[in-house]
Simulated scan of single mutants.
Amino acid sequence: MVSYKDAGVDIEAGNEFVERIKPFVRSTFNENVVGGIGSFSGAYRLPSGYKNPVLLASTDGVGTKLRLAIDSGKFDTIGIDLVAMCVNDLICNFAEPMFFLDYYASEHLDIKNASEVVKGISQGCKIAKCALIGGETAEMPGIYKKGDFDLAGFSVGIAENDEVDRTKFVNEGDTLLALKSSGIHSNGYSLVRKLFFEKLNMKFDDKFDRSNLIDTLLEPTRIYVPEFLKFKDKINALAHITGGGLVENLPRVLPDGLGANIYLKNLEIPYVFGYMSKYVEQSEMFRTFNMGVGMVIIASKENAKFITENSDAYQIGEIVKGEKRVNLI
């Protein structure tokens, strides 16, 4: 007789995993969560107080940053990245994140490692003020190699219908503010890995800036939901700076006839990007990485002053008449 376990899938391990992560999941619940853990789907009440609400959804992964987490055996922060990549997109359409779901697929379920990942997801959800209301775990021997797994995240937020399209709120003369990134975030890691580990032959525990290299590279993506909620009534538009960098992401919130001037001398570029710039062309750096700017706020001059006085945001440029593009000056 052949069992499912003989084929590489351990149902009991899956059940044990669910029990282990329940405290992490429950810690993200709020008054809008309906029911608990273990049903066929997650349920969430729509918040009250909206005049004409619309739901917005975002999904993402963490790219090949996951490869570094797997190879280094460091799983405590990659879940934060997963949440960040979804909720940071939602707030660019003025959606307040409500709930999050994850998908964890592996060759074989390692309960300890998977629990660390979900713990990180729950931490990210708490920062983003959203509930982790469900997820799925799949063991797929024959699809994934031994020790490998993949992650996907899904988040839903709510916004007023007339606030979703931010381009109509952007005006000539508005100020561009940078909210600092925590590092590389979760984009460009194929280039990162090729540079540090193939070209330069560096090791995870090599000293780099003020920590080990692997700790720098796995620094979790910053979640900007707290800043969004704090300054929502003073923000004209937001741009999440991910793959494509400033030059490709900022134009997504610009109306026709307006462009953005960014002054390079104003940018506070972290050490890791300065180091990589010794080996990578500047144009490639700005098309691949956030260069220290994780989120751009567009605000009127008056509101920009208030935001900079009450956060780590700082001015990097302005909105000008012209082609819908970013000018690096």
Rank of each mutant, 00 (worst) to 15 (best):
R325S: 09
P226Y: 02
L132I: 11
L55F: 08
G36W: 10
L151Y: 08
K199Y: 06
T288F: 13
K65H: 05
R26T: 09
L200Y: 02
D148E: 12
E281H: 10
L213V: 14
N327D: 10
I70A: 11
I78S: 07
S283I: 07
E309V: 04
I37F: 08
G188S: 10
L328I: 15
R166C: 13
R210Q: 11
S39P: 13
I111K: 04
L246R: 06
A304D: 03
R67L: 14
K51M: 04
F289Q: 08
L176S: 05
V326R: 11
D6V: 00
G134K: 07
D165V: 07
D10Y: 02
G61P: 05
Y271W: 09
Y103C: 11
I80R: 15
I241G: 07
D174N: 11
G153R: 01
I298Q: 03
Y263P: 03
R26D: 06
V320I: 13
E227N: 10
D256N: 13
N212A: 10
G244H: 09
L250Y: 10
G245W: 09
D89M: 14
V2D: 00
E323F: 07
I184D: 01
N303M: 03
K324P: 03
A313E: 01
F196V: 06
I70K: 15
N93I: 08
T288V: 13
E12H: 08
S106P: 04
V156K: 00
I80E: 14
E302W: 00
M140C: 14
F100V: 08
K265V: 14
S211N: 15
A13W: 00
N52Q: 02
I297T: 01
T64P: 02
A105Y: 09
I319E: 07
T28W: 05
A69G: 14
I91D: 03
S190V: 11
Y314A: 00
T64C: 06
K301H: 01
F17E: 02
K324C: 04
F197K: 06
R287M: 11
N52M: 04
V170P: 04
N249G: 06
D312H: 05
G79E: 10
S48W: 07
N15G: 08
K265T: 12
I297F: 15
L151P: 12
I297P: 05
L132K: 15
R45N: 13
K199V: 03
L217N: 05
M291F: 06
A69H: 09
E31A: 10
G63N: 03
R287Q: 15
N236P: 09
K265M: 10
T28Y: 04
I11A: 09
N201L: 09
N161E: 08
C92W: 02
N249R: 15
I269W: 01
R45A: 14
G257L: 01
L258P: 00
M98G: 02
T175R: 14
E16S: 12
L55R: 04
F231V: 03
E227K: 06
I298E: 02
K5E: 13
T137W: 11
N187Y: 13
S277D: 04
C125D: 12
M202H: 01
L218A: 02
G259D: 04
L66A: 07
G49H: 05
F154N: 11
K278Q: 12
L177A: 05
V117Y: 00
T59F: 13
I143M: 11
V280K: 02
D81K: 12
F197Y: 14
Y103S: 15
F228P: 01
I319H: 12
